[in-house]
Amino acid sequence: MQVTLTRLLGAAALAGTALLAGCGNDDGTAETRSIKVGTMSGPESEVMEVAVQLAKERYDLTVEIIEFTDYVSPNAALADGSLDANAFQHEPYLRSMVEDRGYDLTVAGYTFVYPIGAYSEKHTDIDDLPERAIIALPNDPTNGGRAMILMHNAGLIELDDPENLEATPVNVVENPHGFRFREIEAAQLPRVLPDVDLAFINNTFAQPAGLSLDDALVQEGPESPYVNLIAVRSGDEEREEIQQLVSAYQSEEVAAMAQELFEGGAVPGWE
């Protein structure tokens, strides 16, 4: 009888252990309910913090934010498995990284359009730009292309193909004022503003530098194709945790925080 009782107690203990494990995987380990997402340091991270809170409240999902200050590292970290997702780039930039670096990444959901604008500390009107003015551009292909297309549309230059989203200064076929272009890392553009006549700055970096879209001499409109997104490794876009993050992000609470932080310079891209 003692042996039988001992065996029964042991079986009960094992059953209790299984129950404590909750919804585990087939190998007996507990299911992971946490993910890491990469963002740009600054207001974009503050916006993501709202989604992080909602993901915890609604889905009991723990999301850790990893902050970056450049546009290259977040995709490298996602590709090598250091991140589960990132939220900082628009689709043309993601496509260029996939093509150039062979990353197997895809779109899980859309976030905001952060319009790019042209700012100046020396001039108050785009028509005031002098001959041979120095114009600073983002040095990544797609954001540089945004700036080139804006200049073409404003009549400052003429491009060989105004539909080319990756246009660079080599695609300029008419430059009647002899503008000189300086391609600079996007995050550094607010710092060089005093040294140039005009700088095209993403709102991601403009707003933290105290620049408002209302101050821009030229800016993108709501028709911009550059809606930002949440990127993941291909095959993870339907993963439950990723879809829960996307759902938490595409919320009224997140939109309200972006409206507050970017002062109208963030347009929801999921509506």
Rank of each mutant, 00 (worst) to 15 (best):
D236Y: 06
E31W: 00
F262Q: 13
G145Y: 01
D160Q: 14
M151P: 05
V267P: 01
Y114M: 15
A76K: 12
E260M: 14
E44K: 00
A258L: 14
A21P: 00
R182K: 11
P176Q: 11
T168V: 06
Y114L: 15
E263K: 15
D195N: 12
I201A: 12
Q2P: 00
R180G: 05
E271S: 06
S234D: 07
I135M: 11
I242M: 07
I66Y: 10
D26A: 15
V52G: 08
L94A: 03
S247D: 13
A255P: 04
L78Q: 04
L78H: 05
V47P: 01
I134Y: 10
D236C: 01
M151E: 01
Q259N: 15
S224F: 06
S120R: 12
V267R: 13
L105C: 06
R233E: 03
D100T: 12
E67T: 13
M1A: 12
L193S: 01
S224Q: 08
E64D: 15
S73Y: 00
N139W: 01
G81H: 12
E260Q: 15
D104L: 10
G210F: 04
T142C: 01
C23G: 08
N139R: 09
A15K: 02
A85E: 01
I242F: 04
V47I: 13
A76R: 13
Y93M: 07
I66M: 14
V232Q: 03
V98E: 04
Y110P: 00
I149H: 10
F88V: 04
R7D: 08
V52I: 11
A85C: 12
E131F: 03
N175K: 09
S96H: 10
Q243E: 03
P138E: 02
D236W: 04
A51F: 10
E183N: 08
L213Q: 14
I65Q: 13
E99C: 00
E44S: 03
L83C: 13
Q259K: 15
N25R: 14
R182N: 05
E46F: 00
T62H: 14
Q2H: 09
M257R: 15
L54H: 10
S212L: 09
N75D: 08
Q219K: 14
P194G: 09
D140R: 03
A147H: 07
T39D: 02
